[in-house]
Design a protein around this nucleic acid. Structure first.
Length: 549
RNA sequence: UGACCCAUGGUGUAACGGUAGCACUACAGAUUUUGGUUCUGUCUGUUAAGGUUCGAAUCCUUAUGGGUCAACCA
């Protein structure tokens, strides 16, 4: 806690609470996902906030699955959520909780409310209740069942619990204020009947608490001091507090912050599920997905995600983060750790006429950003591959690479000059005939030549083929959430597969945990399906390219 | 035409009544055997109008703009 460091508004609240010795200075947060989908980068912001702030103030963070709706929730999601949080680097220790752990307690809270005359069973249909609720500018009307006796309510609620009624036949509502300008206070429903089996409690229950009746009480039961959620729950806060006061339980405090919005990125679980269901993507962990598992498969280190979550800031103002902010952090992270290697994505063969048929071994550094990473030797020979677009037959003026008659430096090797273009019957370039400049070897260059550019290459008989996958934004517009029809804004080029890239032979035993930089092409990470027999590299992100064309 | 919340460069975020700062972007230059990295510099900002004050991005009022809320979802 440095004195002059600027604090976000939540840190200010917490420090104020600590100064006042509120809850004896205890800080306890929670991350409360509903297990109905995979976690995405927006959740990552929340995870980092909740776990980060607890750590910062010597507090604890619970993982609590908000599983009060059996119709949507599945164990598969529980597992993925836990894996993702662990990968992000956070530990909830033994505090793995479920709102469903509290069903009995919540039921008793409901009974308590009924006994206090503050809740009633309503026989109205969903439609009728909706109608009677009114609209924000017009008060609602009282349900005809609102004044049932406490005893009758007790019996009816018990009957709901024992399965005497069908789904939708009855609900339990609070007796609050049907004319409140806050719609959430117009006798909100707190229990409904659902016969779908629950992923944890099975068929033990057929009545389930709603979010409003479960969340705050769960916080309270766990002694959560600061319950951090997103802005859309702001209007729920009066209700959150009402339950705490009327149940007379531990006063957790709800604090709302603005959720993360990212350019070109969809955060809606519903629409992400649609992408998965319609097989527009290769599952929840498709490298184009903003899910934590997709981000992981793409090769983005968790540290970059954590740094991003911090960098975007915590405030109460709606925001849209530029994708460049994210990319900047990912590149900065990868630049430090990636092993440099040469890989030719779209090979063009070059025959160096005046070079011997013997191989010559060249030295190359593994990572110029990390002196400890060392050097290695790579073979250079008479036939090499270069990147097809590193040669231009009729170059523009700002093209610095190889041209007919021009020279270019081969990274860590010689300068070559292109003398002839050999084409096939169709007029397509088959290969290039070049010569090398003998005294231009890297490290002992006496040629005096100054090529405008350095390009990567691999030696033909010492390389392996691999599949390389390039990814781009999934959508063509920066604000996909504003479009209901996602099909019309899908980026057709968000996924490009190259099946015959040429990699340095050493890459046959590439480490699946390591990040690589294919020099001048970007950062790459092996796909989960990659094997040494069938190498598959996902491009995490390209390098910045100031040669725009 | 309700309630609640929000408003600082292109974007995000600081400044807590006393010099509007930082990061990203963009642009320019330097370095560079990756058109990468690194370094330097430049551009651009307090939504508006009143008020309080010696002094307002900050406090007050009003306006304007934006967000959330009318699931038996969370």
């Amino acid at each position: 806690m440095s004195e002059n460091k600027s604090r976000n508004f939540i840190e200010e609240i917490i420090e104020e609470d600590i100064r006042n010795n509120k809850h004896q200075g205890r800080i306890h947060t929670r991350f409360p996902p509903e297990p109905n989908g995979y976690l995405h980068i927006g959740h990552a912001k929340s995870i980092c906030l909740n776990f980060g702030i607890a750590k910062q103030y010597n507090g604890k963070t619970n993982l609590r699955f908000d599983d009060t709706n059996p119709a949507a929730e599945e164990t598969e999601y529980v597992e993925s959520i836990k894996e993702d949080i662990r990968w992000l680097g956070f530990d909830w220790e033994d505090r793995e909780y479920y709102a469903s752990d509290y069903f009995q307690q919540l039921y008793e809270f409901a009974v308590q409310l009924i006994k206090a005359g503050k809740a009633y069973v309503d026989d109205s249909s969903a439609e009728e209740i909706g109608k009677m609720r009114g609209i924000p500018t017009v008060p609602g009307i009282l349900s005809p069942y609102r004044d049932r006796s406490i005893d009758e309510n007790l019996v009816l609620f018990e009957d709901m619990k024992t399965g005497k009624y069908k789904e939708g036949e009855k609900v339990l509502r609070t007796k609050l204020d049907m004319s409140s300008p806050n719609m959430h206070l117009r006798d909100p429903i707190i229990y409904r009947i659902l016969f779908t089996p629950h992923h944890r409690t099975g068929t033990n229950w057929c009545i389930y608490p709603t979010y409003d009746f479960a969340h705050g009480q769960s916080d309270s039961i766990e002694g959560i001091t600061h319950s951090i959620c997103t802005l859309e729950f702001e209007n729920h806060r009066p209700l959150y507090n009402w339950f705490i006061e009327n149940l007379d339980i531990f006063p957790s405090r709800q604090i709302e912050f603005a959720r993360l919005n990212l350019e070109y990125t969809l955060m809606s679980k519903r629409k992400l599920l649609q992408l998965v269901n319609e097989k527009i993507v290769d599952g929840w962990d498709d490298p184009r997905m903003p899910t934590i598992s997709g981000i992981r498969r793409r090769g983005i280190p968790s540290e970059a995600l954590r740094e991003f979550a911090t960098a975007v800031g915590i405030a109460r103002r709606e925001n849209v983060i530029e994708i460049s902010k994210f990319e900047n952090i990912v590149r900065a992270q990868l630049n430090k750790i990636a092993i440099r290697t040469m890989a030719v994505l779209r090979p063009l063969k070059v025959v160096i006429r005046n070079f011997s048929s013997e191989l010559e071994w060249m030295e190359i550094v593994n990572n110029p950003e990390d002196p400890k990473s060392g050097k290695r030797k790579i073979p250079f020979g008479k036939e090499i591959y270069i990147e097809a677009d590193d040669f231009m037959e009729s170059p523009s003026e700002d093209f610095f690479r190889l041209t007919l008659g021009g020279i270019v430096r081969l990274k860590s090797a010689y300068i070559i000059q292109c003398e002839e273009i050999v084409k096939d019957k169709n007029g397509d370039i088959e290969y290039l005939l070049c010569s090398y400049i003998e005294n231009s070897r890297s490290g002992s260059d006496k040629s005096g030549l100054k090529p405008k550019s350095v390009i990567h290459w691999v030696e033909v008989s010492n390389c392996i083929s691999a599949t390389v996958r390039l990814y781009g934004n999934m959508f063509t517009v920066p604000d996909p959430s504003n479009y209901e029809d996602i099909h019309s804004i899908l980026n057709k080029e968000s996924f490009i597969e190259i099946s015959n890239a040429k990699l340095e032979l050493e890459m046959k035993s590439a480490n699946k945990e390591l990040r690589y930089q294919f020099m001048r092409k970007g950062y790459f990470f092996q796909d989960k399906s990659s094997t040494s027999q069938n190498l598959i590299f996902n491009r995490t992100i390209s390098l910045k390219d100031s040669f725009l064309k």
